[in-house]
Each structure stands twice: as C-alpha cells, then as structure tokens.
Amino acid sequence: MSEGTMQRAAERKQRNRRDQGEQRMRGGLHRVLVGAAVVPVMLVAAGCSSDSGSDDGAGDSAKSSSASAAASASPSPTVQAAAYNSLPEPCTVLTKKTLKDLVPEAKSGKAGTSDEAGTRGSCSWSSLDNNGVKGSQFRWLNTSLLRFDSNVSRGSGEKQAREYFETQVQDARSVDGAKNAKSEPVAGVGDEATAVRYDLKKKEGSFKQVTVVARVENVVVTVDYNGAGFAGDKTPSADTLNKLAQKAAKEAVASVTKANGSGGGSAGTPSSAPSKSASKSPSKSPSGSPSKAASASPSESASKKS
C-alpha cells in the first residue's frame, strides 16, 4: 500500500470518529431537550390538577352557601292569631236581673283565685231561701272563663278551645253518682254550646244539676247551676234550672264578646309561648263545677247557713 493510500485511510477513520462524536452529542442534546420539555408539561398538568381541586372546593362552598340561603328563605311555621285577647271580670259577666232570677238571695259573688286574670277566671254565688219549718230552697251558681292563646306547638287558640270544650262536656256527662243524665245542644250561644243535666243524691238532699259549656272563638265559658229543696221543701224543676242556666251562659258569652270589642279580638301576633291555661284544667268540685272557687260543695254551704 502506498503512502498516499495509507494517509487517506487515516483521514477517513478520523472523519468517521468525528461524525460519530457529533451524532452522540446531538443524541444527548436531544434527550436533554426532550427531558426539559417534559418538565413544563408535568408542571402544567399539576397546575391543572391543583386548579381543579380549588374549583371543587369553591363549588362545595357555593353549594353550602346556596343551601343556607334556601334554608333561611324558607318561611317559619305560623299559626292563626287568637281572636280574643282578654276576659271580662268573672263576677261582672251576669246582670243583676239575671242573678236575681238564678240566685235571688245571693249578696255578692265570690271570685276564684287566679294568677292569670287575662287567661282564666271564675265567680260563684250561693242563695238560700230559708222559710224555717216550711222548708228552704238552695241555689248555687258558678261561671268560669278560660281563654287560649295561639301557639306554634299547640296550634291556634280556637283549636285548643274546641278541644277543651269537648273535654268539659265529657266531664259533665261522667260525674260520679249522676243519675238520669241528659245532654242537648244549645242554639244561639257562642259558636257551639251543650247543656248537660242530671240528678245527684247527697246526704243533704236531692240536687238537680245543670252544666252549660259554651265556646266563642278561643274562649270557653262553663256555667254550673244546681238547686235543692231542704227541710221537706220540693226539689226544683230540672227544666226551669236548665232554662236559667242557658240564659246565664248566653249572657256570659256576650260579656266575653263585648270585652273584646264588637268585632271580636285583635289579629295581633300569636303568643310565642303556650298559655298556661292550655296545659292545665281547673279542678272539679263535688257538684261538677270546673271552678277553683267552687271547691266547697253547694250542699255544705247550704248546711252552714241553715
């Protein structure tokens, strides 16, 4: 091999080495560039993932705010306002003429004790017409008033009064020892009224009892009236007592309406707390009266005066 040929072969090997080096350099640079390009892509992806999480949190917050707004916008429970907001003085619900007809010998009424004057009240009268050996006529009268306030948990005052009305009528029908019990609706007295009458035997004599329960709006009026003949005097007529008791109930209801104005009561804001009277009923007397003032038996009062 000539010297020139050997030199050209050496030059070709040198060029090949240089070309291979350049290819390796370009390959390394390409890998570096590719790796560098991947990093921004990963950062972008991570950023998108982070933004998506933030959006979800904001969405949850927005949903929570929307739910709270919807809850606050929903109306609060309401109840119809009570029609009557006050009661008359119990001892003034009957006129002097009516009292003269029912309890002719009564000097004055005895008001029942109550710490809820605007919610409940009662008054009773006793009358003994003592004719000595010719006998005596005893009469006892009691009126009780109970007003119910409207309340979200208990309902409207009128609803509560209707329920109490039914309870009072049922109690009058189920008095212990009552005989010949009869009940009848009474027209023209409040929104609804029922009269219950019966005979009651006591050691002092035979009593005739009439209970008239009436409801007007959110007020319940109960009139108890009884009578007896002592010392051989005749027992009063049940029909007469019933007629007089209904007259007293009608007058008492009219007094309640008048005390609240000719148009009824005010449509004011319902009470925020239930009336105490709605959760407790007046105690019963032996004669069937619902008044606390009537805790003493009418016959006991008569015996004291005899």
Score class of each variant (00 low, 15 high):
N180W: 05
S275W: 05
R24H: 10
Q160D: 09
S289I: 03
S295G: 11
S68K: 12
T78S: 14
A231K: 14
V133R: 07
S174Q: 14
A106T: 06
S2H: 10
Q246I: 08
G109D: 03
D191F: 09
S183R: 03
S291K: 10
V220Y: 07
S275K: 08
V79Y: 08
G59W: 01
K292G: 11
L99E: 11
N218E: 07
Q246T: 13
E184W: 00
A106N: 04
L102C: 01
R139Y: 08
A82N: 06
H30P: 00
S153C: 03
V175Q: 15
R162L: 08
P286I: 02
L43C: 05
T119W: 12
K97T: 09
R12Y: 03
L128V: 13
K63N: 14
S2G: 13
A9D: 12
R154S: 11
Q14I: 03
K110A: 13
V220N: 07
K258H: 12
A172R: 04
E184I: 00
E3A: 05
R147M: 09
V44D: 03
G132N: 14
Q170S: 15
G155I: 06
M42Y: 05
S52M: 10
T235M: 08
D60G: 01
S156D: 09
D56H: 05
S122N: 13
D101Y: 09
Y84H: 03
L99Y: 07
V186W: 03
D51T: 07
A36C: 08
G261L: 05
R173A: 12
G53Y: 03
A245M: 02
S54G: 10
E105H: 11
D51M: 10
G121E: 04
S297L: 11
A249V: 06
A67N: 10
F207M: 04
E158V: 02
A302R: 06
K13N: 10
G155C: 07
S275M: 01
K182S: 11
S285Q: 12
V103E: 11
